[in-house]
Amino acid sequence: MKIPSINCVLEMKSALHPSEDPEKVRKCISNIFPYSSIKTENFSISSQSKELRSFEKIYETIHLKKSQNTYRHYLEKNLDNNTTWFYLNKQAAFAEKIAICEEAEESPLGPIKVIITSSNIDGIIDWIVLGN
């Protein structure tokens, strides 16, 4: 996997429900989003990275499962100017698995929202789904 040199901001956000252990939700995010700084607020946990290599676990799963078309669909559907996003299943992330959610309700405790922002968002989408 060759990681392109594209300036970007990668974010992951998840609601933190009263019944959830904050450390377990932090683990969900760190399992799939390494090289990021994670912060806990009252009712949410978020992380951010400016390194595209933080996306490598998601990238590898997309290509191993041959799910490029699914991700392209959501990345293009949710594209707004220089930003796009998609949902990941929180329980799957805890088990170090990556599973996209079509709707937020598919993840019983709420999803992890992955947000990608870049002045070259098309280049990032192409890299994710084509491997360029």
Rank of each mutant, 00 (worst) to 15 (best):
K27G: 11
C28G: 01
I29F: 09
N31L: 06
N31T: 13
N31P: 10
I32R: 04
I32H: 06
F33K: 08
F33D: 03
F33P: 11
P34C: 05
P34R: 11
Y35L: 11
Y35G: 06
S36E: 04
S36K: 14
S37M: 02
S37Y: 13
S37K: 13
I38P: 13
I38M: 05
T40Q: 12
E41M: 09
F43N: 12
I45E: 11
I45N: 06
S47D: 00
S47T: 15
S47C: 15
S49K: 12
S49E: 07
E51G: 04
E51N: 13
L52R: 07
L52K: 07
R53M: 09
R53S: 09
R53I: 15
S54M: 02
S54P: 08
F55Y: 13
K57E: 04
K57Y: 06
I58S: 00
T61R: 13
T61G: 06
I62W: 00
H63L: 01
H63N: 05
H63Y: 15
H63W: 06
H63Q: 02
L64A: 02
K65Y: 12
K65S: 05
K65D: 04
K66I: 04
S67M: 10
Q68M: 03
Q68R: 02
Q68W: 03
N69I: 10
N69W: 12
T70I: 14
T70A: 00
T70E: 01
Y71V: 02
R72Q: 02
R72I: 06
R72K: 10
R72Y: 01
R72W: 01
H73N: 02
H73V: 05
Y74W: 12
Y74M: 07
L75E: 06
E76G: 00
K77L: 10
D80Y: 09
D80F: 04
D80M: 13
N81D: 14
N82W: 10
N82D: 14
N82T: 15
T83N: 05
T84D: 02
W85M: 05
W85V: 03
F86S: 02
Y87H: 10
Y87W: 07
L88P: 01
L88K: 04
L88G: 05
N89K: 15
K90P: 06
Q91L: 13
Q91T: 12
Q91R: 05
Q91M: 09
Q91V: 06
A92R: 10
A92M: 13
A93P: 14
F94V: 03
F94S: 05
F94R: 07
E96Q: 10
I98S: 01
A99E: 12
I100C: 08
I100D: 01
C101M: 12
C101F: 11
C101A: 08
E102G: 14
E102Q: 10
